[in-house]
Simulated assay, not measured.
Amino acid sequence: MPKLSIVIPCYFNEANIPITARELIANEALFPPEVTFEYVLVDDGSRDNTLRELLTFRAAYPDKVRVVELAGNVGSYNAIVAGMEHATGDCLAIITADMQDPPELMVQMYEYWKKGLKLIIGNRQDREETGLQKFFANTFHALMKRIALPNIPDGGFDFVFFDRHVAEEILRLKERNSNIFYLMVWLGYPYVNIPYVRRKRKLGKSRWTLQKKVKLLIDSIMAFSFFPIRAISVLGILLGFGALFYGIYIAVLKELGDIQVEGWTALMVVMLFVAAFQMIALGIIGEYVWRGLDAARKRPLYVVQQVYEQSNLGADRQLPQS
C-alpha cells in the first residue's frame, strides 16, 4: 500500500492547527482506500502554543502524526528539510499550515504520481491577496523565471507532491541559503503543474516578513543564476570603454588647447558613480563569498530538540536529537 507523507512547517500557527488538522483528516476520504497517511508537522521554534496544538493533533491520531520540534527558528525551508528527513512515505507532499492551498488538490497530484511522474507542482494561477503582497510575489517569480529558471511555472509555487527519490536527492544535496522548491525543478525531472487560486489567509498573522522575502529573493537569484556576477562584468566593461573614450576625448582637447579649469562637477559625478559601482560590486561578491563560507562551515541546517512519535511497541516516545 502506498504511503503518503504530508510535511507541514509550522511557525506561530496555533490558531490554524485545529482547522488544518480537521481538513487534512477529512481530505483522506477523497483518496483511494489503499493509501495510508503520515503527517510530519515541524514546529519551527514557535513561541506561542503551536507545539501544544500539534501535540493535541498527535494525541488524536498517534498512529499517523509525527511532530518534530526544532530547537530554534531556522526558516520554513530548513524546517521542510527537517520534515522530509523524518518522513517515511513512498511519496511526499508539502503544504502550508494556514490552508491557503487546497488540500483536495493532492488527490489529483497522487493520480499523476501513480502514472510515474516524480514531481507534481500546484502553481498559483492567481491569489486572493491584494496589494503589495501579491505584487511582490508576482514580481519575484517573474524575475526568477527570466534570469534563473525559465522552466518554472508562472505564478510561483510552494505546494508540491513528489516521489521519495526526489526527497532523497534534496536531502543528499543539503543546500543552504537556497530555495527548496526551485531546487526540485532544478533536479531536471519532468513535472506537471496544476494551476489553482491561492486562498486568502483567514486566521493568524503571516510571519513572512519583508526582510525574509528580500532574503529569499537574494538566495534564489544567487543559488540558481550567475546574473549578478555577469552584470558586474558587463557594467565593468562598459565603464572601461567609457573611460577609454573619455580619456581619448580629454587627450584630444589637451592637444587642441581647449581644456579649461571648469569641470569639477562632472569629475565628482564620475567619481561618485564609479565608487558606487565598486561598492555594489563588492557587496554582490561578498554575498557569494559569505555563502561559500557558510557552506564550508558545514553547520547543521537545523537542530531537533524532540521528536514525538510512536515507537515499535506502540508507546509514545520523545527523542532528543541534533
Rank of each mutant, 00 (worst) to 15 (best):
H86I: 12
M222A: 08
S225A: 02
Q108C: 10
V40M: 04
D294S: 13
A93F: 08
W290N: 13
F273R: 04
W113E: 06
Y308A: 05
N123S: 06
V160G: 06
D258T: 15
E14H: 08
N16A: 14
D219A: 04
K212F: 06
T265P: 13
W208E: 00
E28N: 11
G83A: 07
L143K: 01
E255I: 13
A296D: 13
E85G: 15
I17S: 02
V107T: 08
F277S: 00
T20L: 14
F181I: 06
S206F: 03
F140D: 00
I152A: 02
I17L: 07
V42F: 03
F135M: 07
V197M: 04
L171F: 07
P190M: 06
L244G: 02
K215M: 11
R230A: 10
I259L: 10
M271K: 12
A295H: 14
K64W: 09
K64C: 12
L244T: 01
E262V: 13
K118E: 07
A87N: 06
D43V: 05
E129F: 00
M109L: 14
E168G: 13
L244C: 09
F245K: 09
L217Q: 03
K200C: 05
H165W: 15
M279L: 15
V274W: 03
R22V: 15
E309D: 13
F227R: 03
V289H: 10
A148Y: 01
K115I: 12
K118S: 05
A137N: 10
F181K: 04
L4P: 02
F31N: 01
Q100H: 11
G257E: 02
N312E: 15
D219F: 02
G283A: 10
L55A: 06
V289A: 10
G236Q: 01
L92C: 11
W208Y: 08
A266Y: 12
A97K: 04
L293R: 11
D294V: 14
A71M: 09
L203D: 10
I94L: 12
Y61V: 09
L203H: 13
R207Y: 13
L282K: 12
L256P: 08
R52S: 15
L244D: 01
L173K: 14
A231K: 03
D154Y: 05
G292I: 11
V81Q: 12
L171M: 09
A137Q: 09
V234L: 06
